[in-house]
Amino acid sequence: MIKKQTAKILAFRYKILALILVILAGGLVLLPKYQKNEGIKPEQLLANAISLERYIATDQIAHKLINQDPSFILVDVREEASFKKYSLPNAINIPLKKILDAESGAFLNQNQFDVVFFSNDNFEADQAWMLCNRLDYKNLRVLKGGINSWFKTIINPPKPTEDMPEEAHNLYTARKAASMFFGVAYPDQVQTDPLEKTQTAPKQIITVKKKKKAAEGGC
């Protein structure tokens, strides 16, 4: 009798459990669906967009290029025609139109290298950065001021006047050296003949000394 009673209760319990399961599963079907965003949330994107961390100065890029730093790739987001006319050394060309293509993804969506976007100024590069950041790609940077700034600061640095502080002069020297690395010639840095003449004279003396030394060694 008691057994039958428990069996009944058990059966009732199972029915309740089955009902709960059906209600929960049905709830999933009936719940209003919402579109889920791929990538990061709008709040996060805004926080990233406000932050100036993404900008990298032309001086830093010049330093990295001169030291042959292998940790970054330069991505030119301008049109192909402009890229062919002039671009930074070792840059690859991914025009803004093609930024979402599958083949671009291989360069942009990786965490091996820093990706540095640049365009003529930083507007297009910022757009590219925004798209890629939205897709949650990592290690994205933007060249501050783009190629215009590159020309103004590295290729053709403004010469400081004499009353400017020492830092300005040091910066000018560094930038001048960098621009020489990238192929700019300065008249005052071109070596002249008199230097060579002074070099040849001591060489002759050395050869004479060497002969004497050879004789001494024989003894």
């Binding site: 199972y14 089955a18 399961l21 059906v22 599963a25 049905g26 999933l28 079907v29 719940l31």
Partner: peptide, 16 residues
Amino acid sequence: PYWFIFIFSIIAIVAF
């Protein structure tokens, strides 16, 4: 997926 889960749980209860 939601319909699949619903139908799957009905199948389970029937199986039980």
